[in-house]
Nucleic acid binder design. Structure first.
Lengths: 228, 228
DNA sequence: CGGAAGATTGATCAGTTTCAAGCTCCGTGG
DNA sequence: CCACGGAGCTTGAAACTGATCAATCTTCCG
């Protein structure tokens, strides 16, 4: 299991632990693989443990009765998901599907819980992780309730673009998935991209988007409503 | 400080602790009072600790540049808020004001953090608390993104009504605040209440609402979109 | 090359917000 | 005690955003 222990080192949830703890973790962690599109768990499933992404990407989402999907989070390598069920005992609050071929580590609830009990550092890491997710969710709620789609899209593009000035970014998800991430549908996303193009704020071709007017995007991202 | 220690017993975050721990908590907790409408902290403020509500009610919310408000949570006695900043070190992610005259206990970050480090039970309680909040947020995101206002209102009314059949419930917030809780504005809420009245699903007069057709409300609450 | 999935575009529509006006309730002060 | 005044609530008309439906176009694999 040395190979598992090696991977644990890069996971923020497990940072700062002693070698003995990595050893313990690697004993209880189980590696699982999922094909692209394969379901990892469904909302309401009994939570028997939580997951850490080793490779690939896992989509956590809610889906309405009419089929519209809202992505809560896209988990990349090193990120964990399903922690909530470890502590509340209830079922998972959302669905999880592999957005890419993915490998994950599964940590059974009971075993992990007893590890946490013994190691304050691990507990603190877990609390930090939960807090960070809570902060992200608060931001998503704010966006959904207080901003319109152009604002959310602009914010996302700026996020992809990083701190630098104008430049080209690559969408790391399909446009359909980006729409679900932004809480809208592909048609609307397409229209708004077209509008941003027309206004000269961006130049998009396929998944490549060049940010032409960072300042302009920031304006749209900041204002809650109404395009000026 | 015996009076503080006594209050701690009723707080789920602190359930199952030893008397010595209550003693320790009561030493670091500071009681603070706020008038109705008084601000407890603002988004971005440095998080120097977290709070537990003793009496009254505290509103946690986000506000857009145009002034629209989205309530993230209404904290009643026994509930905690501002925990996120204890662990992430960043500023508070939202605003907090007293919705009623309120008294709270403030626990400074550093002191509390060291308590947690010493007591696995306290740490587990805290994780359960954070997880539960995360679950609530996931539900709110789902509602905002996948349901329309009638659905959210119906769900809220059913929640107030509890498990029982038809009956009369009392809104525990003003209609303006209820609108902010549901992610809409007072006008829209008013119209939808009127519509539910017309359809014979409820009978509302002021803050009193009698649920006439529970089944019908459930239908509206479940479907993501479009009234039938 | 064919075809299916994804992406774009157009027309229409439902739901929500905005703006504006009136109403109701309630506390205050004359 | 009543009248005033204001905050909160309700209602109406119009504007707007985003969703839906439908058709077309693109892409990119088999």
């Amino acid at each position: 299991m040395a190979d598992v222990a090696g991977q644990l080192a890069g996971i923020s949830l497990f940072s700062g632990l002693l070698p003995a703890q990595y050893e313990a973790l690697s004993r209880i962690g189980v590696k699982r693989s999922f094909l692209k599109g394969e379901r990892i768990f469904s909302e309401g499933d009994e939570g028997t443990g939580f997951y850490v992404v080793c490779g690939g990407r896992v989509k956590i989402f809610k889906i309405s009765t009419e089929g519209k999907e809202q992505i809560l989070h896209l988990c990349g390598p090193g990120e964990s998901f399903g922690e909530v069920s470890v502590f509340t005992g209830q079922g998972f609050p959302a669905d999880a599907v592999a957005a890419l071929p993915s490998t994950v580590l599964f940590f059974p609830r009971v075993a992990f819980s007893s590890l946490i009990r013994q190691d304050p550092a691990l507990a603190l890491n877990m609390m930090a992780q939960l807090s960070e997710r809570l902060r992200q969710f608060a931001g998503l709620i704010e966006d959904l309730s207080l901003k319109e789609v152009p604002g959310r899209l602009a914010k996302y593009l700026l996020y992809l673009g990083g701190r630098e000035g104008n430049g080209t970014v690559d969408l790391d998800v399909s446009k359909g998935q980006l729409a679900a991430l932004l809480g809208t549908i592909p048609e609307t996303l397409s229209r708004i991209l077209a509008k941003l193009n027309r206004r000269g704020l961006i130049r998009s071709r396929g998944a490549q988007i060049r940010i032409l007017d960072r300042r302009g995007l920031e304006e749209i991202a900041l204002e809650g409503k109404r395009l000026p």
